[in-house]
Amino acid sequence: MSLLAIEDLSVRYGRTEALRAVSLALDAGTSLGLVGESGSGKTTLALALLGLLPKAGRVTRGRVLIDGVDLLTLAPEALRRRRWVDLAYVPQGAMNALDPVSDLRHQFEATQRAHRDGNAKARAAELFARVGLDESWLRRFPHEFSGGMRQRATIALAMLFEPRLLVADEPTTGLDVLVQRQVLDLLREARRERRMAMLFVSHDIAIVAELCERMAVLYAGELVEIGATADVLDSPAHPYTMGLRRAVPDIRFPDRTTLSIDGAPPSLAPPPKACAFAPRCPFAQPRCHAEPVSARVLPDGRHVACHRASEAAALWVEAQAPETWRRAG
């Protein structure tokens, strides 16, 4: 049984269908990167699985199973007890994730008390050491920390109960390259040492390439491609993935131009009936604008939602030429 199984999950904010029929699974100790641009539904997915959707958000369909138990049917108190212990969350912008009016030691103690008996003090010092923060900083308040230190403190707090699943939402966005490197190494260490599973939300596929064995690409609230990271990056099968792949600079090849995907995602109130990416897709054909698309499975086990998935190899060759994306305008 998978540690986490999301089945057919749909979420609405009023008329906006932010997430539509998303299914994915994560085994114990493995990592999945969830990529997509702003508004693709990445954060909505993370919040829905944690039971932390804002008031306007509503799960309209689907299940979120952890060890076979549907979190969406749990009473709020039961769900609260599982958070931190079974699944911990490092939110986007750790600036706001910590309580500004207590020092870090109190935040560890309050979290500890809320879930289990025991002494958080020694554990907090140990966790701080692991994220490269001196113990003395436990006496300090969040505003005294730099951005990178705050992010590391948030990760230390998330590790308090050695959760089996860590959900991290853009944990390095806004950090400098060197601080980002520390945070990525820290997450990788934690995964290796504790066999912690991780759902890593990011718009940067270079980071996902480093941290995650599998990756899922979201576009306009739907999963368009999911598979092994190496397969998805080497031979992307969905044109949106191809565009993302060509948009990311690679420091090893300074002369290679990066491309952008012109246009913006469609309105999801209501979502388009046919392929949502068709208006921006350089390979769209009449049927792409007319017919709904469903996922098919490639020989390597990948799931791809594209009418032209069978031609993916040829399209990827074309997608590497800058002219292809200019044409899409």
């Binding site: 060197l178 390439a209 190496a230 080497d234 792949r245």
Partner: peptide, 11 residues
């Protein structure tokens, strides 16, 4: 320190 979009290097 810059992440590289190459899963093999990370692997």
């Amino acid at each position: 320190a810059i992440p590289v979009p190459d899963p093999r290097r990370a692997a």
